[in-house]
Design a protein around this nucleic acid. Structure first.
Lengths: 155, 155
DNA sequence: CAAAATTCACTTGCGTACAATTTAATTGCG
DNA sequence: CGCAATTAAATTGTACGCAAGTGAATTTTG
């Protein structure tokens, strides 16, 4: 991918408007997603970031905090209190790894495992709300992955 | 746009993985943007949401809190403390509207107006970091607008 | 092998987000 | 006109995000 504007080229005023910022499109869509998830996730007692952690655990039911952080791109400063709340709600268990006492292994409880039964209901509801075709979904997903990887590499 | 999956159709396991969620692609790209902006905005002493408010004010230098909230899709619970910080930093001024005392009119100070001079530097830097063509940018922006409008309508 | 460097999770502090409540001002309706 | 409903902003309480720092465990290195 190439830079869209050369350094010497003036940025047109129209491109400086809030509504035309790509970052804002991403930012506001992220909020729209969170709001769309809220009534659905309220029913099962999860927040949206907690739901993402559960998705990671439903894929692999025993993971260190660090591994979860790598998938979600979140650090322990965010995850520690979040995981504590999931534990208080009885969905996960946290135990020190006996092989490496620095690590905390997060694992699903029966209740946490059982909650995976809601996944189809949740995803269908969100799919309806997003209201785009599988094709569009894949297109956006792919474009965002490229964008994210550029942004991450740049820092 | 049509729903991508009929209610009676099973969702394939692959589509249930965290990495394949459209919501997660949006969520993690939003974070990547915030991180990419951080070193750039640190230089001018703004956070990313504060920068978005400044963009709105650089377009129209006097606006009620409500009007700003409508553009950013944020409520006064978020904006009130944020605007207080912008005021403390001397970038904006807040005054009660004499025609309608319920409203608080936010306006740029000279310092806030002067900061617009940084906009080209900031946008060029982010454009480089995002590293996509103007074409791609417009494509993603357009797709996200559609997605956001669907999600908002659904709630 | 022991000291230094690194790693992992936790904690603290600050700044969003957002629901819900509060207070003050304005509008609308009988 | 007068009171109820509405509106705008601020406040309170909960939950992220993330930088920076702490402390304990492990790895690296001299």
């Amino acid at each position: 991918m190439k830079a869209h504007l050369a350094k010497t080229m003036e940025i047109p005023e129209e491109e400086k408007r809030l509504e035309n910022q790509l970052c804002f499109a991403v930012y506001s869509t992220a909020h729209a997603f969170t709001r769309a998830y809220k009534p659905i996730l309220d029913k099962v007692g999860l927040t949206y970031p907690q739901y993402l952690v559960m998705l990671a655990l439903w894929e692999k039911s025993e993971q260190a905090v660090k591994a979860i952080g790598e998938q979600l791109d979140l650090d322990s400063g965010t995850l520690s209190p979040l995981l504590k709340r999931l534990e208080q709600n009885g969905l996960i268990k946290r135990t020190r790894d006996s092989r490496d006492e620095r690590q905390v292994v997060v694992s699903l409880t029966d209740k946490g495992r059982a909650m995976r039964g809601e996944i189809d209901t949740i995803m269908t509801a969100i799919g309806q709300a997003a209201g785009c075709t599988l094709e569009e979904m894949k297109t956006i997903r792919g474009l965002l992955r490229g964008l994210r990887s550029n942004l991450t590499a740049a820092v």
